[in-house]
Amino acid sequence: MIFGHDTESSLQAVVALINSAEGPDTLTTVRDVDAWYAEHRYTGRRDGDAAELASLRALRPVLRDLLTADRDRAAGLANTMLADAGALPQLVRHDDQDWHLHAVSGDAPLASRVVVETAMAMIDVVRMDETSRLFLCADEGCGGIVLDLTRNRSRRYCSTACGNRNAVAAYRARRGAREA
């Protein structure tokens, strides 16, 4: 594990949230939020309404900016996000998770918790000088963000679909070159 569990979990959740805007938008209903919330094991307040959906959708470009910023800019953005939210980091333990950081109360709106958890995760990324683990998908037609948590930094695509599409295109190009 490169980062702590809570940092990796937050980064995976925010990358999924941001990438939901790529291609066909996959965050269009409250049910989509329910699925994202459950998959990424968020806890705390859920309003489960259209306003919450809209607030998460509105966060995507803001958080994309944070994750694609260079190290110095990411530090400044994270600091601003934490200050704006009145974040107060605290160690907590709940459900089956051991001690980890929360920086806002569980009854804060979901969008606020997502911003703060992402900013906290980016603090670890910046401190460890690992911003190169976040980058844009190598698929030229995709704008998705890749979170590369592999040891050898070998991940290039944001999803299996992008990887498969590029592998098939490379195969067809090789086959076409042989036939020509």
Rank of each mutant, 00 (worst) to 15 (best):
R45M: 11
R46D: 11
G48V: 14
E52K: 05
L53Q: 07
R57T: 00
P61V: 04
L63V: 06
R64I: 13
R71L: 12
A75Q: 08
A75S: 04
G76L: 08
G76V: 11
L77F: 09
L77Y: 09
A78Q: 03
N79A: 12
M81E: 12
M81V: 07
L82E: 03
L82F: 06
D84C: 13
D84K: 13
G86F: 09
L88E: 13
P89Y: 00
Q90P: 07
Q90D: 12
V92W: 06
D95L: 12
D96R: 10
H100P: 03
H102V: 12
V104H: 06
S105V: 09
S105I: 08
G106W: 08
A108V: 02
A108Y: 02
P109I: 10
P109S: 10
L110A: 06
A111Y: 01
S112R: 14
R113T: 01
V114N: 02
A119D: 05
A119M: 05
A121C: 07
D124I: 04
V125G: 00
V125F: 01
V126Q: 04
L134M: 14
L134C: 10
L134Y: 08
C137W: 00
C137T: 00
A138P: 06
D139Y: 07
C142N: 05
G143W: 03
G143A: 07
G143P: 01
G144Y: 02
I145V: 10
I145C: 02
L147N: 03
D148I: 12
D148S: 15
L149F: 14
N152E: 06
R156E: 15
Y157R: 04
T160P: 11
T160W: 14
C162W: 02
G163C: 05
R165M: 11
N166E: 15
V168S: 06
V168Y: 11
V168N: 09
A169P: 06
